[in-house]
């Protein structure tokens, strides 16, 4: 089946893409670029960097703008998916949704409207097990945004290691956070993974952080041989 992946450049969409690629043809990645930093639906830090990730994986990227207003952005998502269907002939959409009924329902409705299949290969997965799978399958993931107590500045730009996963498991127990960050606590960016023919090297980045909210913005990067 020819599929399009809703692609933010974070770990969930990259992992979902890899799983979908096992037995399907990934015709394109679909990135909705939101002007609203607090978008309900779309991951925002470093969203423009998906272009280099797509290049690293050798998959075409369809980039679609949205102003990121609460329900209007769904119309933009539908337009983006319709464009992917028309341009790349996709028969279905893949998302990295794990627990978010809010996101899953909206994408399901869009797919139904457009008569497309909808796949959520991470749906309801145990989040700590999943974080460990990312590492064991060779994904290199950094934390690109923090948005909740008690994430300190040291998380920004840090790689997802076993030590960090243990910390997240502890925070899940103590503060009921989603360790994968799907509740908006964390954002991530993938530098390398099993689908990457080349890996991403960050040359320059900047950091902003205050009161447990911060972003790690990639300013310069390049592809290097693995």
């Amino acid at each position: 089946m020819k599929l399009g992946v809703l692609f933010s450049g974070g770990k969930d969409s990259v992992f979902a893409c890899w799983r979908a690629r096992e037995k399907n043809d990934i015709a394109c990645l679909i990135t909705v670029v939101s002007e609203n930093a607090d978008s309900y639906m779309f991951h925002t830090p470093n969203i423009r960097c998906t272009k280099l990730q797509a290049e690293a994986m050798g998959i075409p990227l369809l980039s679609w703008p949205t102003r990121g207003e609460k329900e209007a952005e769904l119309e933009d998502l539908m337009a983006a998916v319709a464009a992917a269907r028309d341009q790349y002939g996709i028969q279905g959409v893949v998302t990295g949704a794990i627990e978010s009924v809010y996101q899953a329902v909206r994408v399901q409705r869009i797919c139904r409207c457009l008569d497309l299949w909808c796949f959520n290969p991470l749906w309801q997965i145990n989040q700590i097990d999943y974080l460990r799978q990312l590492r064991s399958f060779g994904f290199r993931v950094i934390i690109s945004g923090v948005y909740a107590y008690p994430f300190e500045e040291s998380w920004l730009g840090a790689e997802l290691t076993e030590e960090r996963i243990q910390s997240l498991a502890g925070l899940q127990e103590k503060y009921k956070i989603n360790p994968s960050g799907e509740g908006g606590e964390l954002e991530t960016f993938v530098l390398d993974g099993p689908l990457f023919k080349k890996k991403i090297e960050i040359l320059k980045a900047s950091l902003s952080y205050a009161y447990y909210r911060g972003q790690y913005i990639i300013e310069e990067m390049r592809l290097v041989e693995k």
Partner: peptide, 13 residues
């Protein structure tokens, strides 16, 4: 199928 991750694996887990 790709759908098994969504409709079967969560129940197994």
């Amino acid at each position: 199928s790709l759908s098994r991750f969504e409709f079967v694996h969560p129940i197994r887990e």
